[in-house]
Write a protein that binds this DNA or RNA. Structure first.
Lengths: 208, 208
DNA sequence: TCCAAAACAGGGTGATTGTCCTGTTTGTAA
DNA sequence: TTACAAACAGGACAATCACCCTGTTTTGGA
């Protein structure tokens, strides 16, 4: 029952936002009475914090951190995620935006607890990418790229692209930004070996 | 009196968001009665649309479009704006985010009228940057950079960086993203001439 | 001066909000 | 079975919300 509430809240916060999601709507959608909801989440804020900690963080983990860690390189991981998300959005026909970004905009100025919870997720996201770049560099790839800089730009470009995609209801801007991002201080071509591998990985991932 | 309401609404929408700004608060802050507010803006939505059309669009125009047009090149214009905004945020000590981005997240899924009004501002912003790149190319600079791609990445990086800056209450990420953005397919050095001019312009602008 | 329209005042209304409170059921150890 | 706390039901609560309505004042052209 707690899970049912979290499911509905996650979905509604994503689609309508925090303030526009009334507890009455959530109760109706989840088939839960006021007493049950109040038992698990004393306040609306507690519910939102649970959604952030248990769902939004997990979504970032699953969508970004794990694929990047599993990728052969940071750059290829970033490319994979951008294209997977763009493909998913184009398939479902509408764009609801990045859950983290959506809540961050609405809540980070409203309440300090919200803000730090969301900032932690952003920090973990960036660090995962930066760590991957460092790992690439330790194994000889990815020349002089500054890991933290690359991570910040990647996360910013993704977040901003999702903002525009949500506003224009068109995921195309994600692909444009990825193309631009790919031209950030590209590492030396290494006799075309890296390029060949990248193509192979891509073909596998986009089937998904 | 209409202007007083718009002033207060712009400020409150930026600081607290649309849903969290009650008309009662706005009336009190503006020193306006309910009758007066209702006379100029029949509904809260009408007020928000006026804020978007008359204030948010103007802010983007003033902060981004005009400086980029006035800059010696698109790249230098982008650099100037990023640094000016970062300096301003660091000086005032807190980050409230980009007005366009804030409202876009909260309203673009809630109402189609909001969405297209906000999307139009994004489109104008991107086009101004892309046009500047094209102008650079017409006068011999800025090699093979794709204008629309560069504009999309720039706007996305800025919007996303502002999201993170708002969430972490730290404008430093803006500078990180600018540094990364500067490494996007940099044009050939042209015997160091462009580099020298860029430094000169920068020194002048950062005083501000 | 006159008058019509715009501008403004200010209370009232119904609906909705988040929260709380009192019972009832369910699960679990002794 | 008994004891007891967690889980849940469901209505009640005050507060707040956006909006509307009836007057009054101000404005500007004839």
């Amino acid at each position: 029952m707690r899970r049912r509430v979290l499911d509905v809240a996650e979905e509604s916060f994503q689609a309508r936002g925090y303030h526009a999601s009334s507890l009455g709507d959530l109760m109706a959608a989840a088939g839960v009475t006021g007493g049950a909801l109040h038992h698990h989440f004393p306040t609306k804020k507690a519910l939102a914090l649970a959604v952030i900690d248990e769902r939004v963080a997990a979504a970032v983990q699953q969508t970004w951190i794990e694929p990047v860690r599993a990728a052969p390189s940071a750059r290829e991981g970033v490319r994979t995620v951008f294209e997977a998300v763009a493909a998913e959005l184009e398939q479902q026909g509408y764009v609801r935006g990045c859950p983290l970004n959506n809540l961050a905009h609405e809540l980070s100025l409203a309440d300090a607890d919200f803000r730090v919870a969301l900032a932690d997720i952003f920090a973990g996201w960036r660090q995962a990418i930066a760590d991957k770049v460092r790992s690439d560099q330790a194994s000889g790839g990815e020349g002089g790229t500054d890991p933290d800089r690359f991570a910040a730009l990647t996360v910013a470009a993704y977040s901003g692209a999702m903002s525009m995609a949500k506003t224009s209801q068109n995921a195309g801007v994600l692909r444009e930004c990825l193309a631009g991002l790919d031209r950030v201080q590209p590492p030396p071509s290494q006799n075309g070996l890296a390029a060949k591998r990248r193509r192979r990985v891509l073909r596998r991932q986009t089937i998904r």
